[in-house]
């Protein structure tokens, strides 16, 4: 009985962590290159809307994913244009993108589909179905390993596996490739990278594009796999939780995964045990559970649980002439 509850709780944790994880890794690329990104939320929302719209019209989930990625990359490039090319304030740009997307998705949703800002319910091939991994059904009855494999690891949509595969991939790109080395360098000391003859601008634009692709996937997961379609404001602050997770993980991919799993677990716990009274503590208000990721992030930022040191050149535009 207890094991069942635990497994279903962990299963929900994985489902809820995926959009956080994709957005968090997206922010990791951008911020490691020295471009702050408050606009993860907006890009994710744009991806969710574009993905659900395209899937609703074409009936194909994969075309939806492509549209989601394109929309998010578009806004990533807008952010890049302001932050890299025009040396604008990166935080202001991110805030602006969040607002434009929050308004535009509802506006276009209403104009195109006339369902109060929603997209039509997606069914069949327009949605991502759970994938049953090999032998999942056969192993189900094996004690301990069986339920973990069949319930926890198997039975998710393709985007879940992609998200978790992105973690080792990001680690490899960042720490084992030339691109990753330069990416990290440009976030710490762009002048040195420039002196070595590598374009700071192009490097940062590539980082921002990768950020767009990943936020697009995060949005696609929300509207094509987790829910059957787009609902207004469906990101509901997840972009900021992802940002919090990124700081929590000190801009490193593997800790980022654990941070996202932790925040996903908090959300899952809040949903499962809403209104349950605990021994000694009593009933924990659901609002406290919802606020917990933000409270934890503030405590972390305060430097009481190890100091989070951001990339040195983060938020500063590079000026070649100086």
């Amino acid at each position: 009985m207890f094991a069942d509850v635990l497994i279903s709780l962990l299963d929900l944790t994985i489902r809820l962590s995926v959009p956080l994880l994709l957005a968090c890794l997206a922010g990791l690329y951008s911020e490691r290159s020295g471009v702050f990104d408050i606009g993860l939320e907006g890009k994710m929302l744009a991806g969710a809307f574009a993905g659900a719209s395209a899937a609703a019209v074409t009936g194909s989930a994969w075309i939806g994913v492509a549209a989601a990625v394109l929309a998010a990359v578009f806004f990533a490039l807008v952010h890049g244009f302001a932050a890299i090319t025009n040396r604008g304030n990166q935080i202001v740009s991110g805030v602006a993108i969040n607002f434009v997307v929050a308004g535009a998705t509802i506006l276009f949703g209403q104009a195109w589909f006339k369902e109060g800002g929603r997209t039509p319910q997606l069914t069949g091939n327009a949605r991502f179905d759970p994938i049953t991994l090999p032998f999942a059904d056969a192993l189900r009855d094996v004690p301990l390993v069986g339920p973990i494999y069949a319930e926890l690891i198997s039975g998710h949509s393709a985007l879940v596996y992609i998200a978790f595969l992105m973690v080792p991939l990001t680690w490899w790109v960042l720490f084992r490739t030339r691109f990753g080395l330069r990416l990290r360098a440009v976030g710490e000391n762009p002048a040195a990278v420039d002196t070595a003859g590598v374009s700071v601008t192009w490097l940062r634009y590539r980082a921002v594009i990768v950020c767009g692709v990943l936020t697009g996937l995060a949005g696609a997961y929300l509207s094509l796999a987790q829910s059957p379609g787009f609902v207004k404001d469906m990101t509901a602050g997840r972009g900021f939780i992802a940002l919090a997770a990124l700081i929590f993980a000190k801009w490193k991919p593997v800790p980022a995964m654990f941070a996202c799993l932790l925040f996903g677990f908090l959300e899952a716990f809040g949903i499962r045990f809403q209104g349950t009274a605990f021994p000694f503590i009593g009933q924990v208000p659901v609002q406290l559970m919802q606020a917990l990721p933000y409270i934890l992030t503030v405590i972390l930022l305060a430097g009481f649980i190890g100091k989070a040191v951001p990339p040195k050149a983060g938020g500063v535009a590079y000026v070649k002439e100086r």
């Binding site: 805030v95 602006a96 607002f99 434009v100 929050a102 308004g103 535009a104 506006l107």
Partner: peptide, 12 residues
């Protein structure tokens, strides 16, 4: 929500 879009554009 058109207002939110305009607000975002002005901020941008």
């Amino acid at each position: 929500e058109m207002i939110v879009v305009i607000m975002g554009l002005v901020i941008f």
